[in-house]
Nucleic acid binder design. Structure first.
Length: 1050
RNA sequence: GGGCGAUUAGCUCAGUUGGUUAGAGCGCUACGUUCACACCGUAGAGGUCACAGAUUCGAAUUCUGUAUCGCCCA
């Protein structure tokens, strides 16, 4: 049974032979993984402490949000972090991987509220704030456990003793300290701003949480009557809108201040476009120009009149209300669109809001927080937007003020969280001033104190920060860090002054834990705002007794996430951890949160600690489903890593993910349900991916999915979701396991001994050289985030070189007493290095094998053996021995491999049964003879042949199948006397001849090109000439072979 | 509308500074269970590198444009 010897007593340094029966021929990951994890845990392998004797290496986990379980995207993210972490740990760093989860304000509250509605038909208001928050904590507990369980099963070597949560006391202290500091620096301010209002969740959401959905809508034309129109002036103004109901909040109608110039501008833009338009576009642009000219003629006089009316202060009657609104001149009105006039609703449209600010217009909020109309809506109060729209349009029609209704596609913003339409809404919000903060974060990346890989992501980061938009941090939610501000509003100046005087006498104020600001509000009254630095119940009670009330809102989740690299290390306390581990080394994350999260961590780290939070950022690809869509909890296409682990094992999951992590593109992962009844695979589709149950199309039985919630759904067996893309990795784990098994079974009589490398046979020196190269490549690969490359190099080396050649050659060598001992030493060393290099990617299987190797060959290494550590996880990372690196040896071994390939190829084309031993003759130069002679046994074993002659004197057999390896000047001949199949042999030779002729033709035409010969580098030309000569020689030889064979067959 | 990326074998993807006949895994074909491994071995078939131009002696690779897809921003 596989186990790590960590649980054993001190490993014996006497080799103990391992019996074949002791190791099963499959790695039983289900059994082994939990034992190995327990052993790591018991030994405290992943715990880090401040350790001045070692350099620190720290990574903070991108805290998964507790909304739901992890999917393969997180699987990839965490696998890559663990690969880096394990490598660094083996390299001797004091390695801390800081784990934790994120409270994810809106997302988590939304799921819990949705569940509340579905299960109990209750709203959060029915439940009350405290009770809802309690329910969310329960949800959090459940999912945090689930998430951490998933990470642990994947083998993530986080320091679990340091587990944090963005809403725990440590993080809360950091949030309070930060907010207090920014408040004191006057970088936090309060403002009425138009926010994206989610009427379902009744909260503002950030721009980043809004997605635009294109929908079919209408463009309604209305007429607003002009009050006291003068002679010659129109008696009404026509406007057009996609949102008729918002007219109740109109406070102006705008016309362009210079319609003529506006037309000119549009026209010149179109002409510029025409100038460099393709033929195809030309017609279209010309048509637009025509229409514009027509429009200009028709509308310009009217627009000029309206502009003059606006200048003259003409008022309009807003229908359905008793309000009069001004006709104003503003550039937001587009003469080329609609009627050329636009209604202005500052409280309910972002552009109109800007106009309202410019023109100093009243801002009338017509909405309640739940999306129904308020008293400003007059008789429409209480209706929702949809009902109001219908009523408004009908009533305008009744008044004969409704004009044309056009069909039009409109972009409607939707809340990413609730999937309901967003209403622009005027609300009180707290903002963080971003100018200096953003600049500091831009500088950190511009001057490369923080390096982003792949580099192309720098641009997005810099562009986004460059806008320096202030950050609205209020969220009208109950789940999150409560904004630490208490306020009184609507008081006069004297009352404010008195209050401030009282506040300043409080103990908290004298210790600098309380700051207050006084502001004049929109309505002319005063407001006093107090911020408290810490959770100080006494201070809080005192403030509240003075009549101040705490802001009901909570902070944007990203506010606490932005502090993650330093809050988790104990900031604002000056902890030894912060001193030692901060700045962290690298951040590994996904591209969609570069701005939301990465940028904010940089600026908050600089503001709070005065140092960047990490030196490097690596952005990894995203995992897409079979349809090319990103995996997400809301779409239902996420795959649970546990499903993959159950079927393929944790090592296969990790290796499979690492292998696809290239930095060029995202990865498609078609997945299937595995029917729990018949075991067949059913493709996951858009239709079935979020279903709670699915009917198997093969056995027709019903199975449940990860979405099943009701008892009746859960009564069906659950189908795991799997992907055949992990089979390769699973097979690789098995290959490694079995190669190790073979190695271990041949360790009987093992004796550690120093070796003199120069005197070792070719294959040993080849292996050592390859180990040195691969060690370098893999180390460099991991250190530069080339995970796919590193994993590919290891796969190819382990499979195609270690297994297919070294182990195969070791078979006859192990059987021979004379060569056995050396073979064991080199093979143990090879396996040892391979296990170390593979450990970060495949920790479980390598740790398991390691314990066996520790028994069979406890002291090992080339050239000088040493006692190995009992646990691979804490063993040393291999150092490439530069003296072992030998390109000449690698070239010579390649010759050997070519000869083996040639014999195998002839055998296959002759359909010679694998068990038949064929006689071969190999013509070589004298130097190759010297090289290959000692390899004769290996050659015979690998190609299942008998070498009759080897050297310059070797000649063709009478019934001969030849293959000329002209590039290495070797001819291989196989005696076909017993096996001849003339037809097959002729076919093979003819095919070969055609191939060679094709190549010769290509080369000749290249070399006949004077330009090539004259302009290409000499060495390239020489190489081509040489290669052509070889090909010609090969052709002659093949032609001769064909003739001989034809003569023989007569 | 702007930015970033992708397009290579039936599928999923590699492809270094431009240079022999463009690679891998899966799938497919043929043969094979001699005791590490059938989650295996050996051999093989399969590609107009999205399209059109340009640069170059030479382009999957560099440049320009087009198409399609994806993501981000407005």
């Amino acid at each position: 049974m596989p186990t790590t010897n960590a649980s054993n007593s001190q490993p014996s340094s006497d080799p103990q032979p391992i019996d074949a029966n002791e190791i099963p021929n499959r790695f039983d990951h289900a059994e082994a993984a939990s034992q190995i994890a327990a052993a790591w845990d018991a030994a405290g392998c992943s715990h880090a402490e401040v350790n001045p004797d070692k350099p620190p290496f720290c990574v903070v986990i991108p805290p998964p949000n507790v909304t739901g379980a992890l999917h393969l995207g997180h699987g990839l993210n965490n696998t890559l972090q663990d690969i880096v972490i394990r490598t660094k740990r083996m390299q001797g760093f004091e390695t801390l991987w800081m784990p934790g989860t994120d409270h994810a304000g809106i997302a988590t509250q939304a799921v819990v509220e949705r569940r509340l509605k579905e299960d109990e038909n209750l709203s959060r208001h029915d439940l009350g704030r405290d009770e809802l928050v309690k329910r969310i904590w329960e949800w959090k507990a459940q999912y945090e456990t689930r998430i951490i369980g998933q990470l642990k099963r994947m083998g993530c070597s986080c320091d679990w003793q340091r587990l944090r949560f963005t809403l725990d006391d440590t993080c809360a202290a950091a949030v309070r300290a930060t907010f207090f500091d920014l408040f004191g620096q006057r970088m936090i301010y309060r403002g009425k701003r138009l926010v994206n209002w989610d009427t379902f969740l009744q909260t503002a959401v950030s721009n980043d949480e809004v997605e635009n959905v294109t929908q079919k809508g209408h463009f309604w034309h209305f007429s607003y009557p002009v009050i006291d129109a003068k002679p010659g002036e129109p008696t009404s103004v026509e406007i057009a809108t996609t949102r008729p109901e918002t007219m109740l909040g109109d406070t102006a109608v705008a016309v362009h201040p210079n319609p003529e110039k506006a037309f000119d501008k549009v026209e010149s833009e179109l002409r510029a476009k025409l100038a460099d338009a393709s033929d195809k576009e030309k017609a279209d642009v010309e048509k637009q120009l025509e229409q514009l000219a027509e429009r200009r003629t028709k509308m310009l006089p009217g627009l000029i009149t309206l502009r003059d009316m606006a200048a003259d202060g003409r008022m309009l009657k807003l229908p359905l209300t008793d309000r009069e609104i001004p006709l104003i001149a503003d550039e937001w009105a587009k003469p080329e669109l609609g009627s050329g006039c636009v209604k202005i609703t500052p409280a309910h449209d972002p552009n109109d809001y800007e106009v309202g600010l410019r023109q100093d217009l009243p801002m009338i909020n017509i909405l309640n927080t739940d999306g129904t109309l308020n008293e400003e809506g007059g008789k429409y109060a209480g209706l929702n937007m949809k009902q109001a729209r219908k009523a408004v349009v009908a009533d305008l029609d009744e008044l004969d003020l409704l004009g044309e209704v056009e069909d039009r596609e409109i972009e409607l913003p939707h809340s990413d969280r609730s999937k309901t339409p967003i209403e622009p809404f005027l609300a009180d919000q707290w903002f963080v001033k971003m100018d200096t903060l953003a600049q500091s974060a831009m500088d950190a990346v511009s001057d490369e104190r923080v390096k982003i890989f792949p580099e192309r992501y720098r641009k997005g980061y810099l562009d986004w920060l460059g806008e320096k938009r202030d950050w609205p941090v209020s969220r009208q939610l109950w789940w999150g860090h409560r904004i630490p501000i208490w306020s009184v509003t609507g008081i006069d100046a004297k009352a404010a002054k008195d209050l401030v005087a009282k506040l300043q006498k409080l103990p908290a104020a004298t210790t600098g834990e309380l700051k207050e600001q006084t502001e004049t509000l929109d309505d002319g009254t005063m407001g006093v705002f107090v911020c408290l630095r810490g959770e100080d119940a006494a201070a809080q009670a005192e403030i509240e007794s003075l009549g101040l009330v705490q802001d009901p809102d909570v902070l944007d989740t990203w506010f606490s996430s932005a502090l993650w690299p330093h809050s988790t290390l104990g900031w604002p306390e000056k902890t030894p951890e912060l001193d030692y581990f901060y700045p962290t080394a690298t951040l590994i994350t996904s591209r969609d949160i570069i701005t939301l999260w990465v940028a904010r961590m940089v600026l908050m780290g600089l503001n709070n600690v005065g140092k960047i939070p990490f030196d490097q950022v690596f952005i990894h690809p995203k995992i897409l489903d079979g349809l090319g869509e990103t995996m997400s909890k809301s779409k239902g296409n996420g795959v649970d890593p546990n499903d993959v682990i159950d079927k393929f094992g944790p090592d296969a999951l990790r290796y499979g993910l690492a292998r696809i992590a290239t930095d060029t593109q995202d990865v498609r992962m078609p997945v299937q349900y595995e029917c729990p009844h018949c075991g067949k695979l059913i493709d996951q589709t858009k239709k079935n991916r979020s279903a709670k149950t699915v009917d198997c199309k093969f056995c027709k039985k019903t199975f449940s999915t990860q979405w099943a919630e009701s008892e009746s759904d859960k009564a069906h067996s659950r189908a795991p979701v799997v992907s055949e893309r992990f089979e390769t990795a699973r097979n690789f784990v098995n290959k490694l396991w079995n190669a190790s098994r073979f190695t271990l079974m041949n360790m009987e009589g093992y004796e550690a001994k120093p070796l003199e490398v120069a005197s070792l046979p070719l294959e040993d020196r080849w292996l050592l050289s390859r180990l040195a190269t691969v060690t370098d490549q893999v180390t460099k690969g991991i250190e530069t985030y080339k995970f796919a490359e590193a994993s590919r190099i290891l796969y190819d080396f382990a499979w195609d070189e270690f297994c297919s050649f070294y182990v195969e050659i070791a078979k006859p060598r192990s059987a021979d007493e004379a060569t056995r001992a050396t073979t064991q030493v080199v093979m143990a060393h090879g396996l040892d290095t391979l296990l170390r290099l593979l450990h970060p990617m495949m920790p479980f299987v390598t740790e398991s094998i390691w314990s066996y190797v520790g028994k069979a060959a406890p002291v090992r290494g080339v050239p000088v053996p040493a006692e190995s550590s009992s646990m691979l996880m804490t063993a040393a990372w291999p150092q490439a021995d530069a003296s072992h690196h030998d390109p000449a040896i690698e070239r010579q071994f390649a010759e050997f491999q070519e000869v083996v390939g040639a014999i195998r190829s002839i055998r296959a084309s002759q359909n010679i049964a694998p068990r038949e031993i064929v006689p071969v003759a190999i013509r070589t130069s004298e130097s190759s003879q010297e090289l290959l002679s000692p390899m004769k046994t290996s050659l015979e074993s690998l190609a299942n042949c008998e070498v009759i002659t080897l050297g310059p004197d070797a000649v063709a057999f009478e019934t001969d199948a030849p293959l000329s390896l002209s590039s290495i000047d070797i001819d291989v001949h196989v005696d076909l006397e017993k096996f001849i199949d003339v037809e097959a042999e002729l076919a093979r030779l003819e095919k070969l001849k055609d191939q060679v002729i094709k190549q010769i033709t290509g080369k000749e035409s290249k070399l006949n090109n004077e330009n090539f010969v004259a302009r290409a580098p000499e060495e390239v030309v020489a190489k081509e000439r040489e290669s052509l000569a070889e090909l010609k020689q090969q052709l002659a030889s093949v032609k001769g072979d064909i003739e001989r064979l034809q003569a023989k067959s007569g």
